[in-house]
Structure formats: structure tokens, C-alpha cells
């Protein structure tokens, strides 16, 4: 009996296709649901109804959108840099799938077990930035290029507080030795292993949002900026930059960016759950269900924030990052390190 799903998959030749298919299917359903939810949440915040006519409660709305996007004409403008233009959506699309594979849905349901999962997730986030810049540069369009430049500047700036806040959690985990449930032996906790972070919270019955509240807030805000969500959606600011880096993309290529954006939302909220909200930890219900429930709650808050606040100006965005977020996260990290060292 293989212990984890990843081991099961390791034994099979079909491992790669099966895993990829599973993730793709799940993510597609997730994106369909998230887009529907986004439209419904925005509607409810604005006291209206949102999609109601297509299917029950408008549930089939996004399916219709998808059908339409699939059948739309794919336009390649004449003066684009063709290789970059064609590659960019794929490159935006691929790392998000890889990042989802690293997530510990429960103690045994981990598609890819990796000792440095946290680092990998951030690394994959970095690839998405390259994809966005490729899209902006390859489009040969001033709006796309400006959007891409903004996106890169923003992502690089906000990655610092994001990683610093995650690092303070890693420090806390590393300071804890804990018992693995299966073995019963004391293992040195590896704070970069996503499942170890969850297990540490499980063990002490204490979610890290209580231990590291400031880190949690900083993480959440930086995650909004990382995923280009409002109020940090200046890379695609409609009033200034038409549609930002995906101005020239139509049909399926555009929907790949769309897909990547919504899956990114899922990834950062899953990571938030792993880091601060105890992962699969929860009573009665099975682990994966708790995991997804918590993730969707975080996503709901992201939507709620999006439909509440207006967009920041670019200088405000940068000021906010370098003058508020980074100092706060460094202070938080130093304080954590101090406490961990003293205790």
C-alpha cells in the first residue's frame, strides 16, 4: 500500500499524464467556478443579481463563456514578435499547474512531495512574471508594454514582503521539533516543506495566523499584488492601459491568461491556508475538504477586497511597498528571529 499518492504515481509509467490530467481537470472546474463566484460576489456587493439566465443560478455562465472563447478567432497582429507572442500564454499557464501539484491537500494527498515546496512555489510565481513580460514585449503594443513593465516592477517589489512574511513562518516551524503521526519519532521540522508547516500547526493546535498576525496581513496584501488583483491591478488598469499586457490577445490565448490569473489566486490562497490557517486541520470533515473550504474563504476575501477598493496609483503602489510593507515585514522577521533565538 503506497503511503502517498505521489508514491503511487511514482510507480507507474502513466504517472505524468494522470497527474497532469487530474490537475488540469480540477483546475478547469476551479476556474469555471471562481469566475462564476467572482461575478456573483461582485453582483451581490453591488446589490444586483449577477448571472441568472444561463443554467440554475447562472452556473453555466462560465461554461458558455468558455465555449465562446474556444470558438473565437485567434488574431495574431502583423507586427508582433511571433515566438514570444505565441509562447507567452503557455508560459503563463504552465507554472501555475506545477505550483498546484506541490500543495498538500491532506497528509496523504500530496501530488508532488518536495522538501523545498515553499521555494518552488515562489519560483514558479517568478516564471509567471517572465511570461507577462514576454506577452507585453511580444505584442509590440505600447499599452501592453507599459502594462508588462508595471507588472514586473510590481511583482519584483511585492515578492520581497511576500517571501519575508513566509520566512517568519518558516523560522517558527524550524524552531519546533514535532512527532510525525505515522512514526512516533521526533523529526527535525523542515520549515520549507509545505506539509511540515501544516503538521506543525496541527501538532500544537495553533494556527500561525495567531502566532504571526502581522506576517499574515502582509502576506495577504502582497499576495493580492502578486496576482494583479484589485486594488493592485495597475498592470491591466482599464482606464489607462486598455487591458494591459493582454491587450492584443484574443480567444483561447486570452483565456489562458485568464486561467492563469484565477489559478494564481487559488495558489496564493492555498499557500495562505498552509502558512497561516492550518492547512487540512479541522474537525469532522475530511482534510482536503477543509483545505479547499479555507482556500475558498481566502479567495472570497480577495474578491471582497477587489470590489471594495479603488485602484492605486503607480507611485502609491511603490511607496506602499517600499515604505510600509518591506520595513514592517523586516521588523516582523527580526522580532520572530529574536524570540525564536531566546526561547
Amino acid at each position: 500500500m503506497p503511503e502517498t499518492l505521489s508514491q503511487l504515481l511514482d510507480d507507474s509509467v502513466l504517472a505524468m499524464p494522470i497527474a497532469a490530467g487530474l490537475i488540469m481537470g480540477a483546475l478547469t472546474i476551479n476556474v469555471l467556478m471562481l469566475v462564476w463566484a467572482e461575478r456573483k460576489v461582485s453582483a451581490w456587493i453591488q446589490r444586483r443579481m449577477g448571472p441568472t439566465e444561463v443554467g440554475p443560478f447562472g452556473l453555466l455562465q462560465t461554461l458558455a463563456d468558455m465555449l465562446k472563447l474556444i470558438s473565437k478567432q485567434l488574431i495574431t497582429p502583423s507586427n508582433v514578435d511571433k515566438p514570444l507572442f505565441h509562447l507567452a500564454p503557455l508560459l503563463a499557464f504552465a507554472p501555475v499547474i506545477a505550483a498546484v501539484a506541490l500543495m498538500p491537500f491532506s497528509k496523504s494527498l500530496i501530488l508532488v512531495q518536495n522538501d523545498f515546496g515553499l521555494l518552488f512555489v515562489f519560483a514558479f510565481g517568478g516564471i509567471a512574471v517572465i511570461a507577462i513580460f514576454m506577452a507585453g514585449w511580444g505584442s509590440n503594443n505600447k499599452y501592453a508594454l507599459l502594462g508588462a513593465i508595471r507588472s514586473v516592477a510590481q511583482s519584483i517589489s511585492y515578492e520581497i514582503p511576500l517571501i519575508l512574511s513566509a520566512l517568519s513562518v518558516v523560522l517558527v516551524v524550524n524552531a519546533m521539533g514535532f512527532t510525525l503521526a505515522s512514526g512516533g519519532s521526533i523529526v527535525v521540522a523542515n520549515g520549507l516543506d509545505l506539509s511540515h508547516i501544516v503538521m506543525a500547526q496541527d501538532q500544537h493546535g495553533l494556527w500561525f495566523v495567531l502566532v504571526q498576525p502581522i506576517a499574515a496581513i502582509i502576506y495577504f496584501i502582497s499576495a493580492l499584488a502578486e496576482t494583479n488583483r484589485a486594488p493592485f491591478d495597475i498592470p491591466e488598469a482599464e482606464s489607462e492601459l486598455v487591458a494591459g499586457f493582454h491587450t492584443e490577445y484574443s480567444g483561447m490565448r486570452f483565456s489562458m491568461f485568464f486561467f492563469a490569473e484565477y489559478t494564481n489566486m487559488l495558489i496564493v490562497s492555498m499557500l495562505a491556508v498552509v502558512l497561516f490557517f492550518g492547512g487540512w486541520d479541522g474537525p469532522v470533515l475530511p482534510g482536503p475538504l477543509w483545505f479547499f473550504l479555507k482556500s475558498y474563504m481566502v479567495i472570497f476575501v480577495m474578491m471582497w477586497v477587489r470590489w471594495t477598493f479603488p485602484r492605486l496609483r503607480f507611485d502609491q503602489l511603490m511607496t506602499f511597498c517600499w515604505k510600509v510593507m518591506i520595513p514592517l515585514s523586516i521588523l516582523n522577521l527580526l522580532a520572530t528571529a529574536f524570540v525564536v533565538a531566546v526561547l
Binding site: 444586483r48 449577477g50 448571472p51 439566465e53 444561463v54 447562472g58 458558455a64 465562446k68 482599464e238 491587450t247
Partner: peptide, 18 residues
């Protein structure tokens, strides 16, 4: 609320509009 019919997504870029 045009969004009831799925027509509420006003796209800024002509490439994504129907």
C-alpha cells in the same frame, strides 16, 4: 444588470470583445 444575461463583462480591449 446586463450581467444577468452574461453580457456584463465590458472588455476594454477590442481583441476580447464580441
Amino acid at each position: 444588470d446586463l450581467d444577468r444575461f452574461g453580457a456584463g463583462v465590458f472588455r476594454p480591449s477590442a481583441r476580447q470583445a464580441d
